[in-house]
Simulated scan of single mutants.
Amino acid sequence: MMLAGRTILITGAARGLGRAIALTCAEQGARLVLADIDSDGVQATAVDLGARAVTVDLGDPESITALGDSLAATGEPLHGLVNCAALATNVGGMGFEDIELDLWDRVQRINVRGTWLMTRACAPMLRASGSGRVVNVASDTALWGAPRLLSYTASKGAVMAMTRSLARELGPDRVGVTCIAPGILTTESTEYVPETRHRLYGDGRAVPGPQAAEDVTGTVAFLVSEAALTLTGQVLPVNNGFVFVT
């Protein structure tokens, strides 16, 4: 129960990896605030876990500010933020020359700006907790340079870079900021991905085969715990050995 007594906010918690992270954090004793643009989905997850559900649109700065204000108004501590929500569906499959400007801008607005604004909105509460933790969810596509996925890959590379800068800015207040970079997971969120790409990952991993969301969630639970401060600024490729970093 390494998260007993800690309150964790998880975005993108309605389904997929975000929901799986919420389940593991609940098992580890965390009090949860679950956020997603899918109001019905996140409410269902919250009911299952006895958590608080909130609706947020990462593409709307006012929505993010309102979420931060509502959490601050409770006067309760916030010990962790998991920035899991992102736009990934139907953003690939095309060469870089064919990406439409509107798609590029939307991916960056949600995946990059949304992550920054969520962290900014929660930073005062994380500082006040005395042991705040931020975990950003990136992707190993930004580590190996996945083709025909440039808008998404670029956004996740930016999330990795932000992690390092945020770690330096928040470190003096003992707020740790880390980043995980999983590969393709077997969730409902990746059903649209061509089987050839799933096979590429499965065959190329040091531990061959598919990777479930549950293979990642234990790492996230540790990273939002008090014990993880010494890892601040690090990007962890939690991908069963598809990509190694030095």
Score class of each variant (00 low, 15 high):
Gly157Cys: 09
Gly130Ala: 05
Ala161Val: 03
Asn111Ser: 07
Ala167Phe: 13
Glu169Cys: 11
Val159Ile: 12
Pro124Val: 10
His79Lys: 06
Gly132Ser: 05
Glu97Trp: 13
Asp173Gly: 09
Trp116Phe: 15
Asp105Ile: 08
Arg164Pro: 04
Asn83Tyr: 07
Leu103Ile: 13
Ser155Ala: 09
Arg133Pro: 07
Gly114Tyr: 00
Ala161His: 07
Gly93Leu: 04
Ala154Pro: 02
Met118Ala: 04
Ala161Met: 02
Asp140Ser: 09
Leu117Tyr: 03
Gly145Ile: 01
Gly114Thr: 05
Arg148Glu: 14
Ile110Ser: 00
Leu166Pro: 05
Val134Gly: 00
Met160Ser: 02
Asn90Cys: 05
Gly93Lys: 07
Val82Phe: 10
Asn83Val: 02
Asn83Asp: 10
Ser151Tyr: 09
Gln108Val: 11
Arg164His: 12
Ala158Glu: 09
Ser129His: 13
Arg127Asp: 11
Val107Tyr: 09
Asp98Gly: 10
Asn90Gln: 15
Ala142Ile: 05
Asp105Gln: 15
Val107Met: 09
Gly114Ile: 08
Thr141Lys: 06
Met118Glu: 01
Val91Gly: 03
Ala85Asn: 06
Ile110Val: 15
Met94Phe: 12
Thr119Val: 03
Asn83Ile: 04
Gly114Met: 04
Thr119Cys: 00
Tyr152Trp: 09
Arg133Phe: 08
Gly132His: 03
Gly80Lys: 01
Ser139Asn: 07
Ser155Pro: 02
Gly130Ser: 08
Leu170Asp: 00
Trp104Glu: 06
Pro172Phe: 13
Val134Glu: 01
Arg120Pro: 08
Leu149Asn: 15
Asp140Gly: 04
Gly132Val: 01
Leu143Pro: 00
Val91Cys: 04
Pro77Lys: 15
Leu166Glu: 05
Thr89Gln: 15
Phe96Cys: 13
Leu150Arg: 11
His79Cys: 09
Gly132Asp: 02
Asp173Phe: 14
Ser155Glu: 02
Phe96Lys: 11
Arg148Tyr: 12
Val112Asp: 01
Arg113Glu: 06
Leu143Ala: 07
Ala86Cys: 08
Val137Ser: 09
Leu103Tyr: 08
Ser131Ala: 15
Gly93His: 07
Leu87His: 15
Leu150Met: 15
Ala85Thr: 02
Gly145Glu: 07
Thr119Tyr: 03
Ala121Arg: 02
Asn111His: 05
Arg133Ser: 08
Cys122Gln: 01
Val137Ala: 02
Val107Ala: 06
Ala85Trp: 12
Pro77Ala: 14
Arg148Ala: 13
Asn111Trp: 09
Ala146Lys: 14
Met118Val: 04
Phe96Glu: 10
Ser129Asp: 11
Ala154Asp: 06
Val159Pro: 10
Glu100Pro: 05
Ala142Pro: 00
Gly132Arg: 01
